[in-house]
């Protein structure tokens, strides 16, 4: 049975000692990180810190050294994200920190994706995401993007205050088959309908499935706006995205 001292990385030891409270999780993580190489421990620690620059660099360096992409994912990125999940569940960190860690994971995965692609592992689908024009709320959209990426979708996140033209340009540029729009205000929600109309005007409406979400949005509003689907939260967003592109839910 491994001991905490078998883990070389000081930050990982601290994370386990300080933040993990359940015996089975402490044991599981000590066993996991004790068998993980020091380089992957460092990568996991950088991810837990939400340091996307460090995760980016360490992932590139690891691949350069010939470390397997599977090892990087399992022992670095996913192992680190497991600790993040526990810290969040226990309220040691909050949504902004979780999203920073998710961004760090994406930074690492960017270097893994070409290997996945070469191995025949294609993205489930390509999604353009954005909060509509006039709206600066992004937490829900970011959680959706995180869930979609975790489920194997390629996500191009346009951020907040996204104009219909920006959505159209992104769909054309990336050849995306899905578009996800978010609005958190009843005053900005109609801009989803404007975007749908802009896609019709650009003769692109049949090329892309449009899903909408956000606290004030309902199925009725989604229907009114001419969207193809409505997701009430990030979990529903993934199911809907899979359904719209005909993937296995």
């Amino acid at each position: 049975m491994a001991e905490l001292t078998d883990i070389q990385n000081e930050d990982i030891r601290y994370e386990i000692e300080e933040y993990l409270e359940r015996d089975e999780e402490i044991e599981r993580n000590i066993e996991l990180f004790a068998r993980v190489s020091p380089g992957m421990q460092d990568l996991a620690a950088a991810l837990i810190e939400g340091d996307n620059g460090a995760v980016d660099q360490m992932t590139r360096d690891a691949l350069e050294k010939g470390i397997e992409a599977t090892e990087i994912m399992d022992d670095g990125l996913i192992a680190g994200m497991g600790i993040v999940g526990i810290k969040f569940r226990e309220n040691f960190i909050f949504v902004p920190e979780v999203l920073a860690c998710a961004r760090a994971m994406k930074a690492g995965m960017t270097h893994i994706e070409p290997i996945l692609s070469a191995s025949g592992v294609k993205p489930v689908g390509k999604v353009i995401m954005g909060t509509v024009k006039g709206d600066l709320h992004d937490i829900g959209k970011n959680l959706c993007a995180m869930m979609l990426r975790g489920s194997g979708f390629e996500v191009i996140d346009l951020g907040v205050d996204t104009s219909p033209d920006d959505f159209i340009d992104a769909v054309e540029e990336h050849g995306a088959n899905l578009l996800g729009m978010s609005a958190l205000l009843t005053t900005t929600m109609p801009n989803m309908a404007k975007t749908v109309e802009a896609f019709i005007d650009a003769d692109l409406r049949d090329e892309v499935q449009i899903m909408v979400g956000g606290a004030p949005v309902t199925q009725e509003f989604a229907d009114d706006m001419g969207a193809d689907g409505y997701g009430k939260d990030a979990l529903a967003c993934v199911s809907l995205a899979k359904e719209l592109i005909g993937a296995k839910a």
Partner: peptide, 26 residues
């Protein structure tokens, strides 16, 4: 490098499990 698609699906399931817990807690 080669990645087995079936192994990778299990990996995605693990990530999804972690993220789903986060979304529910959020």
């Amino acid at each position: 490098q080669k990645i087995d698609p079936l192994d990778h699906q299990q990996r995605l399931d693990r990530i999804t499990e972690i993220f789903a817990g986060m979304v529910t807690h959020a």
